[in-house]
């Protein structure tokens, strides 16, 4: 049974996240952690922007927040977000590939801690962050999904992920949420 879904995206990510999260029911049984690249001075606008489109509760992570099922956790601007067993840890270590938060940092720590119980998802984006992290998830036995590059506002990030990692499913954006529900609630289907 999966314990954590991690999602990474940059350019075009907000609208993609809107589509994905609006497709998930309030009783979605797994925690979701999101890294969306953004300006370091941006306030907590992401969760307030996304919340009206989602039935799951969305929050910007404060250090050591518990990792609970059915909640969407957003990495705060200018911090890396990592996972430990059952909670989140933030860091202000150097940006990785010019990014803080970095998708690779979240994905690599998720792979290290939750191994086969992780689903990693790469959505639209204009750089290559996340490709290494997705490969780490795969190497630790987790599952991987990438948005079909043709359906992405910016295809660079999905294409880089597909080139680097073994990807289990390449899906058009509207198909990702139904697929997640299938993966995470197999008993009820």
């Amino acid at each position: 049974m999966f314990k954590l879904v991690v999602i990474g995206t940059s350019l075009g990510g907000l609208s993609a996240l809107k589509v994905l999260l609006s497709g998930l029911p309030a009783n979605f049984p797994v925690a979701i952690a999101v890294v969306q690249h953004r300006h370091k001075d941006s306030e907590d606008m992401m969760s307030s922007f996304l919340q009206p489109h989602a039935t799951l509760s969305i929050r910007e992570v404060v250090d050591k927040d518990d990792l609970l099922p059915g909640t969407v956790y957003v990495a705060p601007a200018d911090y890396h977000m990592l996972v430990d067993v059952g909670y989140f840890t933030l860091s202000i270590d150097e940006p990785v590939s010019y990014a803080r938060p970095s998708i690779d940092v979240l994905f690599e720590s998720a792979a290290d801690v939750y191994g086969e119980f992780v689903i990693g998802i790469i959505l639209t984006g204009a750089n290559q962050d996340g490709a290494k992290g997705l490969a780490a998830i795969k190497a630790q036995g987790g599952s991987t999904i990438v948005q079909e590059p043709a359906t992405a506002e910016s295809a660079t990030m999905p294409a880089a992920a597909i080139a680097t990692a073994v990807v289990d499913w390449i899906l058009p954006l509207p198909k990702i949420a139904p697929h997640l529900i299938n993966l995470c609630q197999p008993m009820w289907k």
Partner: peptide, 9 residues
């Protein structure tokens, strides 16, 4: 120390 960030370092 928090294991995740420590391990990364």
């Amino acid at each position: 120390y928090a294991p995740s960030s420590l391990k990364r370092r």
